[in-house]
Computed example of a mutant assay.
Amino acid sequence: MVLPLVACGGPTDDDVVVFAASSLTDAFDDIADAYTSSTGESVVISAAGSSDLAAQIDEGAPADVFASADVATMDRIDGVDGAARIFATNRAEIVVEPGNPHGIVTLGDLADPELLVVVCAEQVPCGAYTTEVLDRAGIDLTPVSFESNVRAVLTKVELGEADAGVVYATDIAAAAERVDGVAIADEFNVEAEYPIVALGESGEAFVDFVVGDEAQRILREHGFGAP
């Protein structure tokens, strides 16, 4: 079960509460179902930008597990001290409207001043990865907006509010009928590493499940790479 960051009623004491990066939404929904089928334990997933989730945890939000889209955000959590485990990887990709009407084929095309380009804010993982990709390619962009999480970038392109953006390859796969993707050359791309950590004993079994064979198969089905 995936819930927004703030939900009416909230989880019960018996639920395993998982804070997960927004790019993990679809995969973790399936993983939560598989975990519940295997253990009988209910899982509640709050999916949002990794930075927002980290801030919530720092403020005392009751989470049993945190899965981030980058190591830097995970390292902000007090008490983690190297306990996090890398469980998946991802790649950046350009998202465009169906049929790619503007003929975008390279990162350099995003610098066209006629295009409406959206990206993640630099303080969130997808924004940090985007900045690194653009720096490697020597491209200076002037986005029309900076979004708080990667799904917000995807949604703006889906709705026609932007011509293109930079998201994760898995986001494009999840919205394959509503957007198209343009690959970023390997020489400029980065590998996003996803760490996960139990924030208490009640989350340890779920973390073990995520790094296990069944959950790893689900992650591959959603387009994530092996750790």
Rank of each mutant, 00 (worst) to 15 (best):
M1D: 13
M1L: 11
M1K: 11
V2M: 09
G10L: 08
P11Q: 01
D14T: 10
D15F: 00
D15Q: 00
D15T: 03
V16I: 15
V17Y: 00
V17C: 04
V17K: 00
V18L: 04
F19C: 09
A21Y: 11
S23P: 06
L24H: 14
T25R: 14
T25I: 10
D26H: 12
A27E: 06
D33Y: 02
I45L: 11
A47H: 03
A48Q: 13
G49M: 04
A55D: 15
E59G: 09
E59F: 07
D64H: 05
F66E: 06
A67F: 14
A67P: 10
S68R: 05
D70T: 08
A72Y: 09
T73F: 05
D75F: 03
V80I: 13
G82H: 01
A84Y: 08
R85L: 13
F87V: 15
E93C: 11
E93P: 00
I94C: 07
N100W: 03
P101T: 05
H102Q: 14
G103Q: 04
G103T: 05
T106A: 10
G108N: 11
D109I: 05
A111W: 06
D112Q: 02
P113I: 01
V119G: 08
V124S: 11
V124P: 13
C126Q: 10
G127I: 02
G127H: 01
T130Q: 04
E132M: 11
A137M: 09
N149S: 15
L159N: 15
G160A: 06
G160D: 07
E161M: 11
A162T: 02
T170P: 07
D171R: 02
A174M: 06
A174I: 07
A175C: 03
A176V: 11
E177G: 09
R178F: 06
R178E: 14
V182L: 10
A185S: 14
N189D: 14
V190G: 05
Y194W: 14
V197D: 04
E201M: 07
V207P: 12
F209H: 07
F209N: 07
V211P: 02
V211Q: 12
V211C: 06
D213R: 12
D213K: 12
A215R: 03
R217L: 11
L219I: 08
R220N: 09
G225R: 00
